[in-house]
Amino acid sequence: MSTKIQRLAEIDRVIHEPARLMIVALLAAVEEADFQYLHQTTGLTKGNLSAHLTKLEEAGYVAIAKSFRGKYPLTICRLTERGKEVLDNYRRVMKAAL
């Protein structure tokens, strides 16, 4: 039991943050989504969402493709294989420990 609890210390801190976990959980349930959809669905502010997406991209958990839709910027986000692995691992550790 104690070893399971101790595994909580190994949890990935990038994904453990509630807003980032929400983004990753959402992206795990879809093929891909744009910034606007994530903004509408999560209820995060645009600045907050942008900062969290940057952190997830830097960690290699989310792939971001930027382009334009007309004159507006279009940011498509997709969970990477690494992101899926980290989310699965996070889920396993949390289930086992709690």
Binding site: V30, E32, A33, Q36, Y37, Q40, L74
Partner: peptide
């Protein structure tokens, strides 16, 4: 409505 709802491709 894409400017309001955003784009998503479901599994």
């Amino acid at each position: 409505l894409i400017a309001r709802v955003g784009y998503v491709e479901f599994k």
